[in-house]
Design a protein around this nucleic acid. Sequence first.
DNA 1: ATCAAGTTCGACCGATCGGTCCAACTCTTA
DNA 2: TAAGAGTTGGACCGATCGGTCGAACTTGAT
Lengths: 244, 244
Amino acid sequence: MDRSVELDFRLIKTQFDLNFVSGNRTRKRMVFIVRQERLDDVKRMRLMEAAVEEFAERGFDAASYNKIIERSGLSKGTVYYYFDNKDSLFATTVEEICQRFLHTIGDLRLPDTKEEYWATAWEYHQRAIRFFSENPLPGRVMFRLSKDEPFFDEYLKNAHERATQFMSDLIARGQEIGAVRNDLPWETVHRLIHAMGRVLSSDIIEDRDVSLENDEIKARIEKFMKMMHDLSKRILTPEEVRHV
Amino acid sequence: MDRSVELDFRLIKTQFDLNFVSGNRTRKRMVFIVRQERLDDVKRMRLMEAAVEEFAERGFDAASYNKIIERSGLSKGTVYYYFDNKDSLFATTVEEICQRFLHTIGDLRLPDTKEEYWATAWEYHQRAIRFFSENPLPGRVMFRLSKDEPFFDEYLKNAHERATQFMSDLIARGQEIGAVRNDLPWETVHRLIHAMGRVLSSDIIEDRDVSLENDEIKARIEKFMKMMHDLSKRILTPEEVRHV
DNA sequence: ATCAAGTTCGACCGATCGGTCCAACTCTTA
DNA sequence: TAAGAGTTGGACCGATCGGTCGAACTTGAT
């Protein structure tokens, strides 16, 4: 009996990178484990593009795996050869998007004082919003993640947590140093900021009626960033500070 | 050729109430128009309950009409006899929920001065939140409406607009009398408040781990209302006022 | 040259979707 | 009581869902 069937190969791959010890039948399994990475670059790109489009437009549940496959121009057999199922393709898609997001964010130091706090937050907002405006579809996939989508596996959840970690840390640090109110748990604060971002982005940035000129887009993004920052400040500032 | 097939009978019904003139074949059509209201009360209630459950849990798209029918204990033929299709049942469900919501809200006068504004807002928040805490499932259906669900017909859109009209009017009036910031359109302000409400309600009220005692529930609702009010104030207050 | 592994392809699967249809039943009215 | 409208039940429909499978082709090692 081949027990390997029961395992989540995407997770094993991570494990493997850390503490793999070579053995007899091991080469074969290793090949299987990394199969999806051997997919031809062009085909992989076409598949990921189709996946991002479909997931962004319809969300995980409503997205049609069949349509993704069709749009990618690959055959069903090929896609199922590299990706076990819809879950697996989605997880990989999200993973890639989150990595791109983290790359855009880059390195940021957590603030040590109240004074530094809002400067850091402003910098983060700018970078995050740049990502979302430069990558609208992947951005939508990420946006949907936190509330709409089920975290059906740890792999997916981890990817999302890694992407939002700085924001979480920033809020928690803000609470420590007294820049952020303490009467709400940081998770709630995080979700509040996030929800505001969704509303503002759809209301300010996305305008389906008009095809915008470049300047107009820039202006809107500018407005979006400033508004985000303003609202964040209003919501997060501790009560005692606000009324001084 | 029977042109009536092309018409939306739910809309006609409204028209009919206003300016119907009796005629020859008209009685028959009238019977057809109000058919869904002739559905036996008990059966109607069971159907609506099943519909609310399913729509609340899964949203319109993901909700299964088949499952609603099954859960209601009625047969497919019966349900399709009274409701043309899934859209129609959904519209009726929403209509009923919105009416119940409006009944809970009751009458409220729009404020005339800055001073009155937040008192009125507070009263509205209390009543609205009472509805959502007393009717969790219908509440979820309403919550989903504004963003998640498609307004596939005017009937549905109108129901929603009627339900949220006071809030819209309140914000617009607030802007007129200088109690609410003017640098965002009232629709955006409305959506911001709404989005905040979603986050707070799911974070404060809904706690799936614990079965709450009555006192605890009351306390949470209290906290929810106060927090909503606080955040609304913070977000809506015009810039110049805040820094005085 | 041979054979096995890797890869591609699309026909096909059962489940479920929203929706149709019609036979059969009940209830009203002449 | 006969006719016709109102009502009920559920078998059935085509489309689509995520997913399987095996035949055929390519590639690489011996």
